[in-house]
């Protein structure tokens, strides 16, 4: 049987597209196809990724300019049909800017870009993205200037009530406290889904944690996605 194909949308300024393709190929036994942002058709749509980086230089607001690309219109169409979509870092920012996900990612509380390893608590394993992750706490790098998750009180309550929060920043032992919050995110939120739970946005980078030399928890994350294909 020919291998399935996973699509990765590439914008001018994306810079995690290659790392993501490598991680996906390594774990999901699929091919990957880069979709240039100007393409109006996404041929392979069993699963779509939006990678990290600085699409359009992060100008105006991180992610906003990318939402006007033809490929994103197509992503929105497929999202309505229930196609699994994952946006990482800048991908998460794009997904909030095009309103596929609730809330917004503000400038980090300390106003600085932050790159370091953090611990993530898997808040619930009921989503298609998290149910097969064979660990409760993951160690991933973060690398962003705007990852400070914000949503209005009402939306936040709905997110929590509806169990859309998938990842929270925590300590190495899983305690979710303010001091484990690297960027000021409300409720230590690091990753959420939409209401229908077929779209995941997350700030940390699992695709950068697949080497044996550094942290390898990214492998566990990608292995957990196998069943979706």
């Amino acid at each position: 049987m020919p291998k399935k194909v996973v699509s990765i949308i590439v914008f001018p300024g994306s810079n995690c597209d290659r790392d993501l393709a490598i991680a996906i190929q390594k774990h999901l036994n699929v091919k990957t196809e880069y979709i240039w942002h100007n393409e109006a058709k996404i041929k392979h749509h069993e699963m779509i990724f939006i990678p990290g980086g600085f699409s359009f230089g992060d100008y105006l607001r991180a992610g906003i300019l990318a939402t006007k690309s033809p490929a994103i219109k197509e992503v929105i169409n497929f999202s309505k049909k229930g196609v699994p979509i994952i946006g990482i870092c800048n991908g998460f920012q794009i997904l909030t800017e095009c309103k596929l996900l609730e809330g917004s990612l503000l400038v980090n509380k300390n106003q600085l870009f932050i790159c370091k390893d953090i611990f993530l608590k898997i808040e619930n394993k009921k989503s298609i993205f998290s149910k097969n992750i064979k660990k409760d706490i993951l160690k991933f790098p973060i690398a962003h200037g705007q990852g400070n998750y914000y949503a209005s009180k009402d939306s936040l309550k709905k997110l929590e009530d509806n169990e859309q929060v998938i990842f929270r920043y925590c300590s190495n032992k899983g305690s979710v406290k303010n001091k484990n919050n690297p960027n000021g995110s409300l409720n230590n939120i690091a990753g959420i889904t939409n209401k229908k739970k077929n779209i995941l946005g997350m700030m940390p980078h699992p695709e950068r944690a697949i080497s044996d030399k550094s942290t390898a928890d990214g492998n566990i994350f990608f292995e957990g996605l196998k069943e979706l294909l």
Partner: peptide
Amino acid sequence: ELLSNPVI
């Protein structure tokens, strides 16, 4: 649609 983000 572009210049502002109504969420914030």
